[in-house]
């Protein structure tokens, strides 16, 4: 049910339609590789059935960088690409922060930080044992400053939510750092963790596909470690 893979350059063009060619939106771009790989290779979603109760859910908690998610959803046919051209206009369903009520494929309205992970915990609880769908929530490293995330990290592990994955997009923008690393915060609470970067789609997809039956998984993606992709993946 995973939809057709997209050429990265096509996506960059779609993102540019949202952000404007000359304006570089670091927040949007830091999530692009993760969201692209999720929709290309990991999530079981169907743009023709965005309300399928058995779908996988992608919750964009870091709602201040929606351009990449908008671009990927448009590329996969959840809504017309023309919507990308007037983001935040009066009659546009797409705003600077996404609204689930307005946009097919957007699972939560977000923007205020620290809400996506607790919502994801509840969604995973509601689906557990009732649906094969898994829940993948994307947060930022600075967003983890919000204490509501700590509550959710703790309770998700105690409840053994094997259908929950938290992706932390780490662009090193948090104010006071995370001594010992971000993954350690999840690991000590009982999550299974993976550290990865965005240089290899294959490694990223492997990390994002991983689940454990009795515990949630955290994938910490360092988006600052740029460099050459493996040549074989350049046109993947």
């Amino acid at each position: 049910m995973t939809t057709t893979p997209l050429a990265p350059e096509t996506l960059e063009h779609l993102v540019a339609r949202v952000t404007g060619d000359e304006k570089h939106d670091a927040s949007a771009h830091s999530t692009l590789d993760v969201v692209r790989v999720l929709y290309d290779r990991v999530l079981r979603v169907d743009p023709d059935r965005p309300d399928d109760p058995h779908r996988d859910r992608f919750l964009l908690s870091k709602g201040h960088g929606p351009a990449s998610t908008y671009a990927v959803l448009a590329a996969h046919g959840f809504f017309p690409a023309a919507w990308l051209d007037d983001v935040a206009a009066r009659d546009s369903p797409l705003g600077h922060h996404p609204d689930r009520v307005l946009v097919p494929g957007i699972e939560i309205g977000s923007g205020s930080l620290g809400h996506g992970l607790p919502l994801a915990v509840g969604t995973a609880l509601g689906l557990r044992g009732r649906s094969p769908g898994r829940v993948v929530v994307l947060v930022g490293d600075a967003e983890l400053d919000e204490g509501s995330n700590a509550e959710a990290i703790q309770i998700a592990a105690r409840l053994g939510l094997g259908n929950l994955t938290c992706v932390v997009v780490d662009n090193h923008s948090d104010s006071h750092g995370w001594p010992g690393g971000i993954a350690a915060r999840f690991a000590v609470e009982g999550w299974t963790t993976t550290d990865v970067d965005t240089r290899s789609d294959d490694r990223l997809a492997t990390a994002l596909r991983r689940t454990e039956p009795d515990r949630p998984t955290a994938v910490v993606v360092d988006t600052t470690r740029r460099g050459a992709r493996p040549a074989a993946e350049m046109t993947a």
Partner: peptide, 19 residues
């Protein structure tokens, strides 16, 4: 959820999103 009232409401919202 323990003494975690933010998570309490967030979890409720997520449960409702799941039907």
């Amino acid at each position: 959820v323990g003494i975690r009232e933010q998570a309490m409401i967030g979890v409720a919202g997520g449960l409702a999103l799941a039907g």
